[in-house]
Design a protein around this nucleic acid. Structure first.
Length: 950
RNA sequence: GCCCCUGUGGCGGAAUCGGUAUACGCGAUGGUCUCAAACACCAUUGCCGAAAGGCAUGUGGGUUCGAAUCCCACCGGGGGCACCA
């Protein structure tokens, strides 16, 4: 690293060097901490001190996605977003807002536990050690956090409330009529009063509520809960030793963490009824200020499809299918069920009916054998197999026919693995004429194909999925798709053959994990085996101390293994005697723990009121910071910055929890994060030698012949920053070489926050020079004296100052800090040109320092103080541009001939259309370009340009 | 395959109300300072051309007095989804 050394004899004694920067920075960091500079007062409660000072101000909540405190510490890519929110928060504060900006730690979860297992230390020890390292690095960046509000999800005082929220969710059900969550106690009261019967699918006992036993009633109620235990097909990753949520499994059937194979396995697990919120989660996306990309991903993930259920009679049974194209019903030439569909067994005849095509039977003697064999093959197929066989359509006839309700045609019923039990009704009506998958299947099994939509002219494909008039469709003929859909839906309903229906791709959220390092469930089981919520007074249920915290994992491919929660080994903890109101009794504790997403589902609320022992957040405090407003109709955090990788994980789960809390009346906002920005990634070059091995990137030199390391040529690659690529640059290196302000400025100068950019250490000198030059405007490098003057500002410079203020504010407002930096640089360049030996007017120097403050706060504070101010500039007023000075008296206007630039003329700023044209016509270069030709048209736009068309 | 984003000098990027393309920075080149180097400072720097001028925002078309910006098609890069009926 070649940079200046403050002790170097040739360098002026008072130049801004890395050593000076370090001294200034640690000094101001201590000052801020000692004075609570960034403490944001709450309207009430323990953090209310000083609120009267800010009560009439606007307020803003600016937040980062909190980090996972890994053992590796930070590299220069990590703080990009943290610096961005800090700059914005500091700017808003200087614009007069009470700004809440803080940081916490998301510290439960797999990586912390794996790191602990590897190092043989308890996860608590490693986690809190890592948090210390992170805090040191974050502090050194000069982030203006309200440190009183810091939380860690692993702190019992924090997860007490994670457990409390779980209990609220457990004690709630979704009332589809009210369209919101309500307490289970109200459900029970309504059931007891006979005002309501159990919801469809929740009562498997075949008797009404009034005739059920107590235990049966408990089960019926449990089936309504938003947090419930259910036996269902879940994602089991033996290599991790835990089950996973759908969102944590990649498209090729592996775990997102660790890349282990994931198997579908029926297991009893805790689920969260996020599907009850599917509509609201989709609809509210339109009312929040998020990137389209993330909103699209959430919409796709939820996968709402509007269509209809249609009933096909088959023997004595009814097959209900879901379709988004009820208008194509006349073209339904067969029906397909998922192989696991429960109706299949009742449909099976003893033998193949007359006329069964040999290719439909799979070569088996009876339908039962054929179905049995097909099911086995399908079940043995992994996700990977399914993809690798090119999705060739397979299936088998079940030996039964169904009646198409619209034309009474008898159509065959198949099972095939291209129909999924988990979606819709697990059954489809196949319309090969309008569906590509159905077409392929029809070709394989030689099934009839009927077009019911007239393909557009020139269409030469197979299935036609576009819009067009209905054909071969009886009373629908001639209608366009939309009209045909509503007509047939009405017909189906009228004749009792179906009704409009909506289905979702979203599945309920698998909420239990077989890990030690997570929040214990506040749940016990009695002799019935049904869960019982512990009372609030027993919270937190603390994670028991143990050395035996390693997960029980298995060979990654061992699909037959079964999860074993580590807490299950602690029998003294699991078996417990409690008095839950009916005298002391023995109970068994729940031994699963919550997934690492739990804490991050609500931490934005705890920041607001981090020490409140009575409620998770004081409603007045929540309403002040997050309540709905004109700008934020659903409320929520003003700005939330984090990586796009959480688009359907954290950001979906936290919206769900927030909506439950909203329904139950604990918060006034119905969305947690009003505005979301995904910061880009800092990427880095890596270098490989001729054998393909990575060489240390910081030792590679660029020569005219290419890149060279240790005398040998190497190839440049581009990728993530990381140990394995030997290209990590740490903030600490940058602090040593340049100081934190230079690093902050450099990270923000690289482009808009959303944009990924390559790290280029040698470009860091740019911002470093800028800071040196700003320093030099205020401080004499040789004497150390402040050398600004009290002279008045020359007219031209004053106009530049105010234009700069205007542009810099625009940059800050729109999170395009790179443009703010460019304008600050321009102003400073003008100053150093005009006053090369000092003497710049204080009236320019001071606003310059203030404008720089959000980006390079330490240097700005230092200069501000040297300029004679004895109070931190953190709350100083951001400079305001004088509108009158934004427009010049004369302006330069381009003149074009036929759209080509031919000259520029200087005219009064208020020159009108005619004056502008006259001035242009008087210009010699314009005359030459016109060359005496007649102008056919003249476009004269005041303040913009003149264009002659000849 | 479908959907979304994106393409501007050697590099990061400005210019998004359709109105002077390339602000600002890095790098490069020349200079000042220095015994020398580094640092710092000053100047030049889209391409072709001696100049006049011409050509340039992935490619090809279109709309327009005028297009990096709007429309169509194609090509390249990144991301998401992937038998979801």
């Amino acid at each position: 690293m070649s940079t200046t050394d403050g002790a170097d004899a040739d360098v002026p004694a008072f130049r801004y060097t890395a050593a000076v920067a370090n001294e200034i920075e640690t000094g101001w960091q201590a000052h801020w901490a000692d004075n609570g500079t960034f403490d944001a007062p709450n309207p009430s409660g323990p953090l209310a001190e000083g609120f009267d000072r800010v009560a009439i101000r606007p307020h803003a909540y600016v937040m980062d996605m909190f980090p996972y405190p890994s053992g590796a510490g930070l590299h220069v890519g990590h703080p990009l977003g943290y610096i961005g929110t800090d700059v914005f928060a500091r700017y808003l504060r200087m614009r007069g807002s009470n700004v809440l900006h803080t940081m916490g730690f998301d510290a439960f979860g797999l990586p912390a536990e794996q790191y602990a297992v590897q190092t043989g230390q308890h996860p608590a020890t490693t986690t809190y050690g890592n948090i210390e390292i992170f805090l040191k690095q974050l502090r050194r960046l000069g982030l203006g956090h309200d440190e009183r509000r810091r939380v860690a999800t692993t702190d019992p005082a924090f997860y007490r409330w994670t457990q409390w929220i779980f209990l609220k969710i457990f004690e709630s059900w979704y009332d589809p009529i009210a369209g919101k969550a309500r307490p289970v106690s109200e459900l029970i009261a309504e059931l007891d009063a006979g005002e309501r019967e159990p919801a469809e699918g929740t009562n498997s006992f075949g008797r009404p509520w009034a005739e059920l036993s107590d235990v049966e009633r408990r089960q019926v109620v449990d089936n309504h809960r938003l947090a419930y235990r259910a036996e269902s097909t879940v994602n089991w990753a033996p290599g991790l030793g835990t089950v996973l949520a759908n969102e944590e499994v990649t498209a090729d059937g592996r775990s997102e963490r660790g890349n282990f194979p994931v198997f579908k396995k029926p297991l009893a697990q805790w689920m969260m009824r996020i599907t009850a919120y599917a509509d609201r989660l989709v609809d509210d996306l339109d009312k929040i200020d998020w990137p389209d990309k993330v909103r699209t991903m959430q919409r796709n993930w939820i996968g709402r499809s509007t269509g209809a259920h249609v009933r096909f009679a088959s023997g004595g049974s009814v097959i209900e299918v879901f379709t988004t194209r009820p208008d194509t019903l006349f073209g339904a030439t067969y029906v397909v069920l998922a192989p696991e569909h429960p109706l299949v067994d009742t449909l099976l005849p003893a033998s193949w009916p007359e006329g069964t095509k040999p290719s439909w039977t799979g070569g088996y003697e009876t339908p039962a054998e054929a179905v049995d064999s097909y099911r086995k093959t399908a079940a043995a197929k992994s996700e990977l197999d399914r993809q690798s066989d090119g999705r060739a359509k397979t299936g088998v006839f079940v030996g039964a026919y169904a009646t198409n309700p619209v034309n009474d045609e008898q159509i065959p019923v198949f099972i095939a693995d291209y129909v999924l039990m988990g979606y819709g009704t697990g059954a489809i009506m196949a319309v090969p004429g309008q569906d590509e998958r159905d077409w392929e299947f029809a070709e394989v099994f030689d099934l009839p194909i009927v077009r019911t939509v007239q393909p557009s002219e020139g269409f030469d494909g197979k299935a036609f999925t576009g819009d067009g008039p209905a054909i071969n469709s009886g009373f629908l003929d001639g209608m366009e798709v939309t009209a045909a859909k509503s007509t047939i839906s009405a017909w189906l309903e009228e004749h009792g053959h179906g009704r409009g229906a909506v289905t979702y791709r979203l599945r309920d959220w698998l909420f239990s994990r077989q890990r030690y390092w997570g929040e214990p469930f506040p749940v016990v089981y009695d002799e019935t085996g049904l869960p019982i919520a512990l009372p609030e007074s027993m919270l937190p249920v603390e994670l028991p101390e143990t050395d035996d915290f390693s997960p029980k994992s298995f060979a990654p491919e061992d699909a037959d293994s079964t999860p074993e929660p580590p807490l299950g080994r602690l029998s003294d903890w699991v078996e417990v005697e409690l008095d839950l109101g009916d005298g002391p009794k023995r109970y068994r504790r729940e031994t699963n723990t919550m997934p690492n997403w739990a804490g991050s589902c609500w931490y934005e609320l705890r920041y607001l009121d981090p020490t409140n022992p009575d409620v998770l957040v004081d409603p007045e405090v929540e309403h002040y910071w997050m309540g709905p407003s004109a700008d934020r109709p659903l409320g929520g955090v003003e700005l939330y910055v984090g990586g796009v990788e959480h688009a359907v994980l954290h950001l979906l789960y936290s919206r769900f929890w927030h909506k439950v809390l909203y329904d139950l009346g604990y918060v006034s906002s119905s969305e947690p994060f009003h505005r979301l920005v995904n910061q880009g990634y800092v990427q880095a070059y890596a270098y490989v030698d001729s054998r393909g091995a990575y060489v240390p990137a910081d030792e590679v030199e660029e020569t005219p012949d290419g890149y060279v390391w240790n005398g040998q040529p190497v190839q440049r690659e581009y990728g993530k920053m990381g140990k394995s690529l030997k290209n990590v640059v740490t903030p600490d290196e940058m602090f040593d070489a340049y100081g934190a302000d230079t690093l902050r400025l450099f990270e923000m100068a690289g482009g808009p926050l959303e944009q990924s950019r390559p790290w280029d250490t040698k470009a860091v000198v740019g911002p470093y020079r800028l800071l040196q030059r700003i320093w030099r405007v205020v401080v004499d490098e040789n004497s150390g004296a402040v050398h600004v003057s009290d002279d008045s500002i020359p007219e031209e410079l004053n106009r530049l100052l105010h234009k700069t203020i205007h542009a810099v504010r625009e940059g800050y407002d729109s999170l395009r800090f790179n443009t703010s930096i460019a304008r600050i640089t321009e102003l400073n360049n003008a100053l150093t040109q005009a006053y090369p030996h000092g003497g710049a007017p204080r009236a320019v120097a001071e606003p310059l320092v203030l404008m720089l403050a959000p980006l390079a706060p330490h240097l700005a504070e230092e200069l501000w103080s040297r300029l004679g101010h004895d109070v931190s500039l953190a709350w100083a007023d951001f400079p305001v541009a004088d509108e009158a000075l934004l427009v010049d008296e004369t302006i330069e206007v381009p003149v074009q001939v036929n759209g080509k630039l031919r000259s520029k003329i200087v005219v009064p700023a208020d020159a009108d259309v005619a004056a502008l044209e006259a001035a242009a016509r008087a210009d010699e270069r314009v005359l030459a370009a016109l060359d005496g030709r007649e102008t056919r048209r003249v476009v004269s736009v005041p303040g913009r340009l003149v264009n002659f068309v000849v």
